[in-house]
Amino acid sequence: MNYEFAYGIGFHPWEDAVEEPLFVERITQLFEEEERDREPPYGRALDVGTGSGIWGIELAKRGWQVTGIDNVEKALQRARDRIGTTGVEMGLVLGDVTDLRASGIDPGYQLILDTGTFHGLNREQREAMGREVDAVAAPDASVLMLTWEPKRRGPLPRGASRSEIEAAFPGWTVTDLGETHFEAPRPVELLLKPDEHWYRLRRG
């Protein structure tokens, strides 16, 4: 999907997830599980494909030291505006998720969040993203990844299976955490059948 074009014409329906109570409840539960038995500040979090920064900002509010990376300047400008209105601290990087280190992302992230980037990449890009995440993740890191189930959807993300995630992240244990509970508008749901799932990846 051409996200630069989408943001250029103001098309970003994925931002509507923040208005979906069940989706928000589920992602909040996942954040809480990563924070269990710990006190803020929780450590460094990397929001890959951050877009307008919605979920990176939520992590920052909770006590994470957050960096968001995206390759679309218009998306990052929306993120800057959001950060300005919320008053949180969150770093933003214009860069490529398949080449994190060249984009200035250094190692040591305890949490990596992907709310829809990996599942839109081709095989070579996924392998590159897996290598880069592995390089910048802390030894005890977790990855929280949202993907659609695989299906041809024209120019939209085709999705990714658990086995495809495992192939791109060798050495990580992948756990299917179930549906995201995002409720797309009925026509969109019938047309795309996203069947969104959360996955958790941990080393070992």
Rank of each mutant, 00 (worst) to 15 (best):
S161H: 01
T180M: 14
F169S: 01
H181G: 14
E166W: 02
E179D: 10
G171V: 08
W148E: 09
D176M: 04
R162A: 04
R186L: 12
T180L: 15
L177D: 01
L177A: 06
V188W: 12
D176V: 02
R162Q: 15
T147G: 07
M145N: 06
W148D: 04
A167F: 01
A167Y: 00
P157H: 03
P157E: 01
T147Y: 07
L156G: 00
L177R: 07
F169W: 02
R158E: 11
R162H: 13
G159H: 01
E149V: 10
R153L: 15
M145F: 00
P185R: 03
G159Q: 10
W172H: 05
I165A: 02
K151R: 14
L146Y: 00
F182E: 15
K151W: 13
L146T: 03
S161K: 03
P187E: 04
D176S: 02
A160L: 11
A168T: 00
E164H: 08
L177W: 01
G171E: 12
A160D: 05
E189Y: 01
E164Q: 14
A167N: 09
T173N: 08
M145Q: 13
E179G: 10
R186E: 14
R152G: 08
A160W: 00
A167G: 10
L144K: 11
T175S: 15
R162W: 03
L144S: 08
W148A: 10
F182S: 12
R162M: 12
G154W: 03
I165H: 03
R162G: 06
T180F: 14
G178S: 14
P155N: 12
R158L: 07
P170Q: 02
R186I: 09
A160V: 00
P185W: 03
A168D: 01
E149Y: 12
R186A: 12
P157C: 03
E166L: 08
A167V: 00
E179I: 05
L146A: 07
S161A: 12
P170F: 01
G159R: 08
E189W: 01
S161I: 01
E183D: 14
A160T: 09
A167D: 12
T180S: 15
W172K: 09
V188D: 07
A167K: 08
E149M: 15
R152K: 14
L146M: 09
E183I: 15
T147I: 07
P150T: 07
I165V: 09
S163E: 09
P155T: 11
P157Y: 01
P155V: 10
M145D: 10
L156I: 08
E179K: 10
R152T: 14
R158Q: 07
E189R: 06
M145V: 11
S163Q: 09
P170C: 00
T180W: 14
F169A: 00
H181A: 13
E149K: 13
L146K: 04
R153K: 11
E166Q: 14
S161E: 05
